[in-house]
Design a protein around this nucleic acid. Structure first.
Lengths: 341, 341
DNA sequence: CTGAAAGCGCTTACAG
DNA sequence: CTGAAAGCGCTTACAG
C-alpha cells in the first residue's frame, strides 16, 4: 500500500499541506474549525506522520543508542529495562546493540548509530582501548555517557560505582568470616571497572597482611563456560580457596553452578560473593551475597543525564562524572570459613 | 559542530554531489581515479552518511521494532540477544520497546514504531484484545511477526510452541512422580500462550481422572510480588499442593523464592516446573525442571522470517505460522511426591 | 489564520 | 563515466 502523507490529508481536508503540518505540531494560531477538520481526516484515514522526514528537517531523531555488553546478562537486561521505559516516557526510543564484549562490535555499533543520527549514546563496557574514540565524540559535542565504565580522563561523561571500594567490602566481609584463601574471578582487565575490582581485592588483602596468590585470580573474558571450568579446576585443588569473589553476579552464578556440580554445599563448603545485585540475587532460593551497584538508580540517572546533555547542549560546560557508593548485601551464599581438615 | 554532507565531500574532492553518492553506493561505472579521490576525502573528513536522509528516499529504514513484555525477564532478554545479534549481521538495527505487559503500551509502541518507519515488527506477548489491530497491519502488507504468541486467525504470522502439549508434559512428569495435588501459576488468560498452558494442564489432569481444583490455579499478571505472596499463602494451607507448575521460568523462580522463604526443601517438600528453559535453568545451582521452548531456535527463526517478509513482500502469499515442539527438561526441582503425613 | 515555497541530505532517472 | 535536477515527506520563515 502507498503510505499517506500530509499532502493526502491536506487534499481531502481541503487545506494546504502546511496547515496540516501546523495542526500536527499544535501550532496555536489555527482556526478551531480548520483544526478539527484536519484532525477528523487524520483520524479517518489513520494517518501517521513520517518521523523520518521530520527528523531530517529538525536535525534530531528522538532516538538514542544503547550499547550493551551482553543483554542476556541480567545486569544489562535490568539496566536496559529501566532505560527503555524512562526513555519512552520522555518520548525517545532506544536502538539497542549487543557487542558480546567485542571491541570491533563496539566500534561498529558507534558508527552505525551515528549514521542513524541518534541524538546520543549510552555505552557500557568500554575498554581502555577506546579512550581516543570516546574523547573525539565528546569533543565534537556528541552526547555520550559511559555506564558502569569510566575512563581516566576529563573529557568524558560517565556514571560508575566506586569499584575499588566495592571489592574491598567484599574482602572485608569474607575476612571477617574467617576466610583466608579467597579467589577472585575477574573480568578482562581492559575494562576499568573490572580492573579496579581486582585492584581493590588485592589492596584490601595486602592491607590486612595477606600475600596475593596469582593462582587464585582468573582474568577471563565474560564467558560462562570458561569461568565454569576454571572454577571446577580450582575447587578440586588440594589448597582450594574457601571463598570466591566474582566480578559480577552472572559470574557468581557460574561459580555456584560449578561448585554445585561438584556437590559442594553453599556456604558450608564455599562462600561466594557477586557484584551488581541483580534482582535474582535477593530471591530466597538463590540468596546471593553481593555488592550492590544500585542499578535502578544508576540506569535511571544515566538516561536522564544523557537526555539532559541532548537537550541542553549549549549549556553543558562541564563533563558529567558521577560516582556511586557500593553497598554490601549479605545473604545466603556466604558463611563462616569451613574448618580446614 | 555542523555535520558534514555529501555536498561538503564533493566540494573538497572537486566532483559533484551525485558522484559522491554513487561512490557511497558502490555504483560500478566510476573512474577508479575519481572513486579513490572521493574515498580519500571521506576518510580524511571522517564523513558518515546520513542514513535518515537515505531512508527518506529509499523508503526503508533498515530498522526493525522489537516489542517485549519485560526485558528483565531472561526469557525476553535471551530472545532479544539472539534477535539483535542476528539483525546486526543482516545490517538491521533494532528498536526495543518494553511494554511491562500493558496493553496500552503495546498499542503505543506499535504506533510509534510505525511513525519511525521501521521495516517490520516482532511482537511478543500479544493479547487477544489486539487481534483486530494485528490483522489490519497484516492486511496493509506491513511485516509483523508474533513471537511466542499466536492468534486464532489466518491473516497473521507467528512462531509459537505447542503450549498445550508442553503443559501436558509437565503434568505427566509430576503425575509419574506420584504428585496428586498440582498447582498452576498461570499468566493472564488474555494471552493465548498462557491460556493454552492452563488448558493443557486441565486437560491432562482430567484425562487422568483428576478433578480440577480452582483453588490451585492462580491467574495473575506477571508480577513477581503477586506470585510470591500467592504461593506463600498456598503453601501454608493444610491441603497444600506438593507440586507447582509455573507458566514461565521467571514465575517458577518466584515460586522457589516463596518456598525457600518458608524453609521448604526443593524437591523434597515441593516440586516445581517452569516453562521456557532460560539459561539459568540448567545452571546446577538452580537446576530447574522446565519445558523447553527452544528459545535460540525460536528467536533466530523469528528474526529471519521477519527479514524475509520485509525483503520479499511481493512474493509473500501465505502467512507464516510455525509451531515448535516442546521438550521436558528434567532437573533438580522435581522429585517424588512427599509421603503425606 | 493560512498558503506557496525553500530546504533538510540523500538517491537516481535523465542527459550528455 | 559524470553532472544537474527532481523528489522523498516533512517544518517553518515569509507574505498576505
Amino acid at each position: 500500500m502507498k503510505r499517506l502523507t500530509t499532502e493526502d490529508v491536506a487534499r481531502i481536508a481541503g487545506v494546504s499541506q502546511s496547515t496540516v503540518s501546523r495542526v500536527l505540531n499544535d501550532y496555536p494560531y489555527i482556526k478551531k474549525n480548520t483544526r478539527e477538520k484536519v484532525l477528523a481526516v487524520i483520524e479517518e484515514l489513520g494517518f501517521t506522520r513520517d518521523e523520518i522526514a521530520r527528523s531530517l528537517v529538525e536535525k534530531r531523531t528522538k532516538s538514542i543508542g544503547l550499547i550493551l555488553g551482553s543483554i542476556s546478562n541480567p545486569f544489562f537486561a535490568e539496566t536496559a529495562e529501566v532505560i527503555i521505559e524512562r526513555a519512552q516516557e520522555l518520548k525517545y526510543d532506544v536502538i539497542v546493540y549487543n557487542t558480546g564484549h567485542k571491541d570491533e562490535n563496539l566500534e561498529q555499533a558507534i558508527n552505525l548509530l551515528i549514521g542513524k543520527r541518534v541524538d546520543g549514546i549510552i555505552l557500557t563496557s568500554v575498554s581502555k582501548n577506546y579512550t581516543e574514540k570516546i574523547k573525539k565524540l565528546h569533543k565534537n559535542g556528541f552526547p555520550v555517557l559511559l555506564y558502569n565504565s569510566s575512563l581516566d580522563i576529563e573529557d568524558v561523561n560517565f556514571i560508575v560505582m566506586d569499584n575499588n571500594k566495592g571489592a574491598r567490602l567484599a574482602v572485608q566481609h569474607l575476612l571477617g568470616l574467617g576466610h583466608e584463601r579467597i579467589a577472585k574471578i575477574s573480568g578482562p582487565s581492559k575494562y576499568l571497572a573490572t580492573y579496579e575490582r581486582t585492584m581493590g581485592y588485592k589492596q584490601e588483602l595486602a592491607d590486612n597482611g595477606y600475600a596475593i596468590d596469582g593462582d587464585l585470580i582468573f582474568n577471563s573474558e565474560f564467558s560462562y563456560d570458561e569461568i565454569y571450568s576454571f572454577t571446577k579446576k580450582l575447587l578440586k585443588k588440594k589448597d582450594r580457596p574457601t571463598a570466591i569473589i566474582a566480578a559480577s553476579d552472572q559470574m557468581a552464578l557460574a561459580v555456584l553452578g560449578a561448585a554445585s556440580s561438584l556437590d559442594m554445599k553453599i556456604p558450608d563448603d564455599l562462600s561466594v560473593v557477586g557484584f551488581d545485585d541483580i534482582r535474582l540475587a535477593s530471591n530466597e532460593f538463590i540468596g546471593l551475597t553481593t555488592i550492590s551497584q544500585k542499578m535502578d538508580q544508576m540506569s535511571l540517572t544515566a538516561l536522564e543525564k544523557l537526555i539532559y546533555l541532548i537537550e541542553h547542549k549549549e549549556e553543558a560546560a562541564e563533563s558529567i562524572q558521577i560516582f556511586l557508593e557500593p553497598e554490601l548485601m549479605i545473604r545466603r551464599t556466604t558463611g563462616p570459613a569451613p574448618k580446614q581438615e
